[in-house]
Amino acid sequence: MREQLRLLKEKAENELKQCQLLDDLNEIRVKYMGKKGELTRILRGMGQLAAEERPVMGQLANEIRDSLESRLGQLTEKIKGKELERRLLAESIDITLPGIRPEMGRQHPLSLVIEEIEEIFMGMGFTIEEGPEIELDHYNFEALNIPKDHPARDMQDSFYLTPEVLLRTHTSPVQARTMEKTHPHVPVKIIVPGKVYRRDDDATHSPMFHQVEGLVIDHQIRFSDLKGILLSFARQMFGADQKIRLRPSFFPFTEPSAEVDISCVICKGAGCRTCGQTGWLEILGAGMVHPRVLEMGGYNPEEVTGLAFGMGVERVAMLKYGIDDLRMLFENDMRFLRQF
């Protein structure tokens, strides 16, 4: 019997060496250790042995069984590993195929810029006011200290609907409307984004364009505050290293008035074609609200002062995105819009 067991072990181990598949392993397990397996059969024959031999043979048979079991276990793991490897290899994909992209929308560059400006000023405590685009001459001009036949009206050639009603030429009438409805309360701290219209159509002028206006009225608003607000805006909009420069200018509704330049976004102030070699780009007009405008708005200029500023959105967008042709902004060409 001992000899029988030895042969069986040898045979089984040889067969295991040949195994490649999990099925083969199972077959061997059944062949030797199944209910009708060879080892099982031998063990059943134990009863015929002499009593003193039984424990010895039993131990031997168990050792063989354990060894086979453990060998089977090892091989099972090994073959499973190989099979998984094979399957994963077969499942490989060409990861360079293009992705399945949900379609992407685009926001118009002007609305992007307006939104950005709004957010910068909201961060500084400004609320957003709006007003009609079709406006009374009174709010568009007269309440802003631009009487009829004032030469300053030449600065803004207008589209008229009736002698008293026009397409607003700037967002400033909303200043007048806001003062009228808010006075005598302060602070007023608003920006006014919107469409404006002037009777001009050439390479650098569009009959419709966009402005953002700003107005602050409070006790003790100073020209120096105007500088601070605009510097903060310029840095958030164009970069932390931005500088601004104020040059004296004239607007009927502000005094003192200023044209405001930012350091050129292209050459950083060194001088280039965009800035005409000056290193500066004119970007907005600003000033202290004219006492007469405050008065017409219902405020006492001895008690409160104000600052105001206004910028062209197209200009900001063109600088920000390096657009060199104003018309691109209104042609709505997909090849252009796709880039935002």
Partner: peptide, 26 residues
């Protein structure tokens, strides 16, 4: 304004308004 422009706008300090805080929103 005459004083400001001849004094030089560049020499005017840069400050922020000092009044009450306001909430910016839509």
């Amino acid at each position: 304004e005459e004083i400001a422009r001849l004094y030089d706008y560049e020499r005017i300090p840069t400050t922020l308004p000092e009044g009450v805080t306001t909430q910016g929103m839509r």
